[in-house]
Design a protein around this nucleic acid. Structure first.
Lengths: 197, 197, 197, 197
DNA sequence: TATGAATGAGCATTCATTCAT
DNA sequence: CATGAATGAATGCTCATTCAT
């Protein structure tokens, strides 16, 4: 009966799933988990609210998927930076520059993480993903900083704390950007002054 | 008419109102406006949910009162800094040091402002208070930076943008601290590197 | 210790009770049982809401007392009419004229009875009082009409039904008056056309 | 997109909306606006309380819809009477006879109007609809009476006041009927005696 | 007595989730 | 797959009633 091969069907389904995920990312970023309504997400994705549950069993699962997506983006960024044949300091600069690009998607990821972090009601799956993210970003960053310190490029101090400070500062700037998109974005070069020797 | 002196009654009422406000500050800081439940606030204040409405007509009014309190705290801090007989740069250091103290209350104020800023559902009164806060902090800060630039203490660049960057960074660090209270707090001296000449 | 004799105290208490009852009559008349708030009544009586419960154990009891008062007023009116040394028709005219006077108090009684009759949630005590009122008004009225019919003054027809019609019409006019106090009041002479032979 | 034809869906929705409206009419008639509970209406309609809000955004809107329905019924009745090729007096008789039919629906409409008129808490929309109703009924009725007076069929007197008296009386009788459905209904011929020359 | 703080049951409303079509 | 009707748990808010002062 089906005119389309199963693979094509599966692909369409996957595309639709991505649409929902994208819509959810935007809505969660703007409203946070609790205030975001399934119907907001459905509207943003151009489908009915009932259909959202065909792709994601629950609002919580959808949120977890968005978080997971963010975490994987960070993982990928860090992996890319580590794979480049450059100095540790240049890797830091590279990471900063990507972060600073602040595409809408990146801002949304950051805002979601802020919401997920600051909200106390995040479900367990989300908590775990956030912890994983924390480690994923913090550890390689500390390593990069430590490496850069050895080469004299980075300022002295406990690399772990510097990494955290850098993460906090980056997050603060990203929030600011996300909230005021039109505003002149502080150059990431400024942020690097935190770490520069 | 009352068997108790009116002044005392009024005083008790005011105290209780402050208790509720404090409880609300904490809950709003941890959960944001929408996710915070009146019953959470009531529990935190050790009273029944009905009594919360005895002191504040609505959740929105309570939130607005908390925001107002934050705004006034900032106003006061800026005013104190401006009143001190010190150089512009020392004023910046002073403001940073107070901000960096990170009493629970200060963190809560910052988190609330983050929530209120990032959440799309803040009511109109709150939006206005936030706008006022934005101006209250940004303008004097820009002035301080400009002054410090003239004395050569601060780095070059548009004072307005530097002020915004500094605010974003401070907010980011405060969030980080609020979320991980046990963690070693990045010294505010680090933050000053952003501005130092 | 008490500077006043017990009797005087009792009298004051009784006066205050009447104040509350009067206030309640007005509020119940304007809002009905459910919509009337104890605090409305307290405000109207110029006392605190807590004090209302010193005079009446509950809102329901207060309502019952108001109804009781109405019932007794009707009883008294009917009794007065029956005691007068006049013809049956003149008694009908007398009752109509008193009803038509429409002092604020009389209107309020009527509106309360309408509310109590039309509202389904009246408590048992109230139901009983209303039934009693129904009989109290209906029976003597039927008797008066029957008497007037025998003397040829009243129109023919079952006296019981004529009495009910008259009561319904009187109530309708009273409602109209109560709702539009400024408006020219239809003369009760009009109402008597219903019964006149 | 929908697997069911849109027209059919719309029709079902409209039917269900009418069910809710009917249930609401009965409950509002018996209890008045404040005392009527959404859950009462839902039970009467055989649906869950949540679904009521699927069809009407709020209790107030539902009440307004019921009132609107009443107003339109009156408009239609008056329009029909005016369209008939009969004398003014016959038109009055016709209106009385329809009113006197006292189907459950008509009684409910009248009781609702009484509740809405006597209750002080009716929302603004309702107030406006009632004012409109007042004019809609009063003006054409006055005109009819005036016309009937010119033909000598109606009693003398200010047509406006007679119209009001007639409305009040009709309302009173309708209340009486609605409250005691089993009782012998006073003939509307009786009411016409108010107006007959 | 008199006040008003305090409680909690009750109601309107919202929204995630399910499911018939 | 897709829709939206339907449900009911959850939440803000009101208000009768109690009670410490």
């Amino acid at each position: 009966m089906s005119p389309r091969p199963a693979a094509r069907v599966e692909q369409l389904r996957e595309e639709r799933r991505r649409d929902v995920l994208s819509a959810a990312r935007g809505v969660f970023a703007r409203k946070g988990f609790v205030a975001a309504k399934i119907s907001d997400i459905a509207s943003a994705a151009g489908i009915s609210h009932g259909l959202v549950h065909h792709y994601f069993p629950s609002k919580e699962a959808l949120f977890a998927a968005v978080i997971e997506e963010s975490v994987q983006g960070w993982e990928a960024l860090i992996a890319r930076a580590r794979a480049m044949p450059i100095t540790a300091w240049e890797r830091l600069v590279y990471v900063c520059s990507i972060m600073g690009e602040s595409s809408a998607v990146a801002s949304e990821h950051l805002l979601i993480i802020v919401h997920a972090s600051t909200g106390e009601d995040a479900p367990q799956t989300v908590r775990e993903a956030l912890d994983r993210l924390e480690r994923l970003v913090h550890e390689p960053l500390s390593a990069l900083i430590e490496e850069a310190q050895r080469s004299g490029a980075a300022t002295a101090g406990p690399p772990g704390e510097l990494a955290r400070a850098w993460m906090a500062v980056t997050q603060g700037l990203a929030i600011s950007q996300a909230l005021h998109p039109g505003r002149a974005r502080p150059s990431m070069e400024l942020v690097l002054r935190l770490l520069k020797a």
